[in-house]
């Protein structure tokens, strides 16, 4: 049977790797190429690399740098940040990305996602779902304050036949207090597509606790690998 996928997440600000807390207070954590090399040597299952400032700063992702990151990896790699056109997707797949992670464009223009899935195949189109909690409802985190229910967004993307959802809890991001287990139960009821949970892992038992809720998606994390002594191998051993 399939094993639980463990995925380190690398967030990049255009200059160096950073780690945020609740999507603010970005703290520099190193050089992306070196970090990718370490993750590769630790035999991780997949890698996610996101330029979290590309869309906000209206620039394209740095392709030569991303290529160097991908060249370090002998496992599937997902790349996100500032993807607006077919050309952007094509460029990333061309340098060896296996999946692209899209958020803003999916919110603005679901039709783009329908076409991207038809053209590139659903397996390589992942959707980033950054979630906040407001008045006891799960909403999509956005720079403007437009209210979009998480459920509505995921249902719409599910109909577009996307390959995967990367669901990140903004409240838990960088806090290292554990995953939002109720969030992932909710998402599992909305879609049958593969899910990647991100946000909150601080110790290996946090992963185990989420798996024990019958969650059968992938487990992603960032802070635990940057700031603690735990490696992906130790986390995996703990789960098994």
């Amino acid at each position: 049977m399939l094993k639980v996928r463990l995925i380190p997440v690398m967030t990049f600000n255009g200059v160096s790797l950073v780690k945020t807390k609740q999507f603010t207070n970005a703290r520099t954590v190193g050089n992306p190429i070196q970090v990718a090399r370490v993750y590769n040597s630790r035999n991780v299952d997949e890698l996610v690399f996101v330029d979290i400032k590309a869309t906000e700063q209206g620039r394209k992702i740095n392709l030569p740098l991303v290529k160097k990151v991908i060249d370090e990896c002998f496992m599937p790699v997902t790349i996100g940040g500032g993807i607006r056109t077919f050309e952007d997707i094509n460029d990333l797949l061309g340098i060896g990305a296996d999946k692209v992670l899209i958020k803003s464009k999916a919110l603005q223009n679901p039709e783009f996602i329908v076409k991207a899935v038809e053209y590139f195949g659903s397996q390589c189109i992942s959707i980033a779902v950054d979630v906040i909690v407001k008045d006891r409802e799960y909403l999509i985190h956005q720079k403007n304050d437009e209210k979009v229910l998480m459920k509505t967004f995921i249902e719409k993307m599910h109909q577009c036949n996307v390959g995967e959802f990367v669901v990140n809890s903004v409240v838990c991001d960088g806090m290292m207090n554990g995953f939002d287990k109720i969030l992932y139960q909710n998402v599992s009821q909305i879609t049958t597509k593969p899910i990647v949970a991100v946000g909150g892992a601080g110790v290996p038992s946090h992963f185990t606790e989420l798996v024990q809720t019958n969650y059968n998606g992938a487990l992603a994390a960032s802070s635990i690998y940057h700031f603690t002594q735990y490696t992906p191998q130790e986390v995996k051993k703990n789960i098994e």
Binding site: L2, K3, R5, D45, Q123, T192, P194, A218
Partner: peptide, 10 residues
């Protein structure tokens, strides 16, 4: 019972 595609490590 299980999602398709068969995606991951086996």
């Amino acid at each position: 019972r299980l999602p398709v595609p068969h995606l991951g490590w086996n």
